[in-house]
Design a protein around this nucleic acid. Structure first.
Lengths: 177, 177
DNA sequence: ACCTGAACACCGTTCAAGT
DNA sequence: ACCTGAACACCGTTCAAGT
């Protein structure tokens, strides 16, 4: 708070005239960050529409990594988050999912997307991981040794699509059964 | 640190004789917590084996919620985490996945599991979410209104299986193509 | 070797007072 | 109404000194 106040050229206590606490200020920051990534027009089949919704969430979190940490401290409901949820449930129900399955499916997609963005945003840097894994004894960890390159590669962006596609394919299986 | 030292009945600075910093102490805590949940004997088909591995990770994080927050601050590699990774990659390769697909699949499962545990452990309490969602105007958010009960229910434990099963089903689709 | 009080820089927040 | 310095309780860490 004191650093923010100094950056703004005001006294620290001035901030408390606008926000009751640091948490309340951060809530507003999170909401403002979310508002920068409004839901675009949805097109394509239900899977493609959900891909668009989740890509928006991912971009929001990657665009403001600091927001991720705040959101993991306590539950925060943003206006954009509500709009994404509404759109997601609509898409899933229109695709034929029951209310229960639609809610569970959205939650699964949300969790995966949030985790991907979290581990990317919080800088789970590949060099450090690589070093740690490469130092393991190959005879004890042969599978890691063989796939070291592939494991490190999962910190790249295309990992997002892999998991999301798998999840969507799995949801389709549930839909058909 | 001062509170921990007091609880231990020693001076604060005594702790720095055993750990170079608070981070280093927390690393040891995280590793100790993980060691409480060793990988059990794996049985069943590849999906069942991965379910067992991920359940172990989930239990570890839910068993020590404070650990979750620490692990989201910086990348931490635990001994048990390495063992789980080795076991997971082995299972996936034995099931027929290529090295690349195995690494991506494990990462997807890990991300989903970690996110589930995170949002449960950090107390994304359903009452607050319910209140926030129930206060929305029904004409603007009809899908949320209709599925309010189902959405709140996704904070329960059986949500874990739903998403994990969907992910595993989706991975099976990839395996067969 | 093992332990420690004092001190430092930093933080969120409150209070009473200033314009 | 809007702003503010001083103060408080708290924190991680360092230093120089104790046994």
């Amino acid at each position: 708070m004191q650093r923010l106040a100094e950056a703004l050229g005001v006294g620290t206590t001035t901030l408390y005239g606008y926000f009751r606490s640091k948490d309340e200020l951060l809530d507003a920051v999170v909401d403002a960050a979310a508002a920068e990534y409004p839901l675009p027009q949805l097109g394509g089949d239900w899977k493609e529409q959900l891909r668009t919704i989740m890509a928006t969430l991912r971009d929001e979190l990657l665009g403001h990594p600091a927001v991720v940490h705040v959101r993991l401290t306590r539950p925060i409901v943003t206006a954009e988050g509500i709009r994404r949820l509404e759109a997601g449930i609509r898409v899933l129900r229109a695709a034929g999912f029951t209310n229960t399955l639609a809610a569970q499916a959205y939650r699964s997609l949300f969790l995966y997307t949030f985790a991907f963005a979290t581990f990317n945003a919080l800088g789970t840097a590949s060099p450090e991981i690589r070093t740690a894994l490469a130092a393991l004894p190959p005879d004890e960890y042969p599978a890691i040794w063989d796939t070291l390159h592939d494991i490190v590669a999962t910190y790249a962006d295309n990992q997002f699509d892999h998991g999301l596609d798998a999840l969507l394919d799995g949801l389709e299986v549930k839909l058909r059964s």
